[in-house]
Amino acid sequence: MEVLPKIPKSWNLESKPHKFCPGCGHGLVLKALGQVIDELGIQDRVVFGCDIGCSLLAWDFFNVDSVQTHHGRTTPVMVGIKRANPELIVVAYMGDGGGYAIGSQHLVNAATRDDKITVLLVNNTIYAMTGGQMAPTTMPGQKTETTPYGRDVGVAGYPMMGPEMVSAITQEGAYVARGSVARFRKLKQYIKNALQNQMDERGFSFVEALSTCPTNWRTNAEKTWAFLEEQMTDQYPPGEFKTPQGKEG
């Protein structure tokens, strides 16, 4: 029986242990991505783009070519690379703020243009790097630094339902899913499907990963997991929203 988790070959060991906080879900999402890169044998042609906020800590996470930027602009940077060199497999990795707020126009337009890229967005319901302010994905009633009495939807609006939106605006051939770090194997499968979709040049691919932020949630391990597994999963149903020809990947 294998006890130790296998470290993905595409990981950059020099940057390990990684820089994310204890209990943060980013490491799991990036582990899934690393394993997928290994399994698809694309380490030599993946370009990994990360954004401002916690995702930027991944700028040297992999032994793959990586570009860091900000404000959800990792999407147009990856679009630019892909358009200039379609041989490359590009992954735009960002948080919910970058993808759904400040850079939402890029997500929307890359999706509607059916750019052959993969967007991997981590939803932890909060702006974490900046110290726990409300995010587009903050849950109704959830306390954050800028909603200290809980998110009042009458004032601050409702959470952004990313995959639901993206699946509504994409064409046949797109792949859209929502996974969770609590369901690692599913999440990994979704990421693999998304990258495969890009490799097959079928269309835009998008995976939202429900993730954890005990530092800003101010939760212990048990409560962290409960928030993810119960409340978040309730608000944000995981699953595949769109697959080419309706097929499971």
């Binding site: 990856m78 679009v79 630019g80 358009r83 929307v108």
Partner: peptide, 26 residues
Amino acid sequence: KRFLQTEDELSAGFTTVGGVLAGRRA
């Protein structure tokens, strides 16, 4: 040669950055 009409000038600039990163005169 190619062209992409983007959603705004932020995107026009960042895609240009991407094109250059891919090694093209963009």
